[in-house]
Design a protein around this nucleic acid. Structure first.
Lengths: 215, 215
DNA sequence: GTATGATTCAAACGATCGTTTGAGTAGTTG
DNA sequence: CAACTACTCAAACGATCGTTTGAATCATAC
């Protein structure tokens, strides 16, 4: 079933199509033409256009979120009872997404754009999928942040974490943002982007609790 | 012309429609039904669906960007030859957008969602409009940041500025993110959101040039 | 008054949409 | 061989899309 050629062809074609034109802007006819598959195959294999979108999203974000949880597990196991640093937490959260994009080359760029789009998609459907997929990851990472920053109110941390997602989402939406301005060789040092992002975000995430530090 | 009742009704209805369902997801029929206007009125007053989107976008972002430029002018005039701080620059950039949302109440929330969506819209059209509207603002603010942070490479500053836009965009896309977790009265102190955003972003924007500060 | 321009309206244009149908093909199981 | 399942295919379903048309309506000017 997972290697069904037709099913896979549809998913592979739907990914860039949704990424480029959005959900409403992608027609099943153009999609099946691109995938060289019969129009009815979509409904046979997925049931509906919405179910196809759900399948596409699941295939992408499920492994990323699995890695995010595994990375946090690993981190906490290594740390023992030492408190995690903000940098460690952020890196564990951001790395799976950046790695995925790097490993996949051109498809990674398309996929990144698709992911970035999905977070701001208007359709209630997409919102629901993203939220449901993201649930556990958000809870776990928020808890880790609360342990790392016990003096910052949880509500404030929640807000800051959303800002982190905002940056990641926006960068994903236009992958040219991710290319290093220093002209680093592509994917040679996969950690350059990650370290830069962490360096940009960590100070704000870990800032002292007083969020009105004199304008 | 600017007070043409039909034209205004169309724009007012198009704003929340595009915000909620996106460009491709909004039908002119539903839009004209909402605006209680004849279907052909859109083509009579705007020419096409795309031209309508352009008009909607222009009406929103033009005053915001005008205020951004004016705010930077004011800031530089007051400062004389003193260098601006990162906090000042960020506040001047972010304030017009936050103010607009605050002043407009419910329409502001809708409008914010629309703006947030637009930045990640897939359509080449929207991308083009946003970029063309944003051009001068970006150049001016980047120049200000370069003066404030002469030790950071311009390319790096460019990237950081994009991250700022990313956070703003993401927060705009879901206005619930903007409500203060401290339960501050709505819009009583309009600067709370602004100060919080600046406090979160300024450390990252103004971080030292070495962006690989040891993982 | 009539004439002129701007605006609105119902109706239709052709195209395309997501979805369904039913016949047709291949492959496996008895 | 027949029977059954899994899948593909061309064709059509009704609905809706953006856009256009031409007559109706209204204002203002002569």
């Amino acid at each position: 079933m997972p290697t069904d050629p037709t099913r896979k062809r549809i998913l592979d074609a739907a990914e860039p199509a949704f990424a480029e034109h959005g959900f409403a802007g992608t027609s099943l006819r153009a999609l099946t033409r691109q995938a060289r598959v019969n129009l009815a195959a979509i409904h046979y294999h997925f049931g509906s256009k919405e179910a196809l979108l759900r399948a596409v999203l699941d295939r992408i974000v499920a492994p990323v979120n699995r890695e995010r949880l595994a990375g946090l597990d690993r981190l906490e196991a290594e740390a023992g009872d030492r408190a995690l640093t903000v940098e460690e937490i952020l890196a564990a959260f951001l790395r799976p997404a950046l790695d995925l994009i790097r490993d996949l080359g051109e498809r990674g760029r398309i996929l990144a754009r698709f992911l970035g789009r999905s977070a701001t998609e208007p359709t209630e459907l997409v919102q629901a999928i993203v939220h449901e997929q993201f649930g556990e990851v958000g809870i776990r990472y928020l808890a880790a942040l609360e342990r790392a920053l016990p003096t910052v109110p949880p509500g404030e941390l929640f807000w800051r974490f959303k800002c982190v997602i905002g940056v990641l989402t926006f960068l994903l939406a236009d992958p040219t943002h991710l290319t290093s301005p220093l002209g680093a060789e592509r994917s040679q040092d996969s950690d350059v982007e990650l370290r830069r992002l962490v360096a940009f975000l960590a100070p704000g995430v870990g800032a002292p609790a007083t969020f009105c530090p004199q304008s």
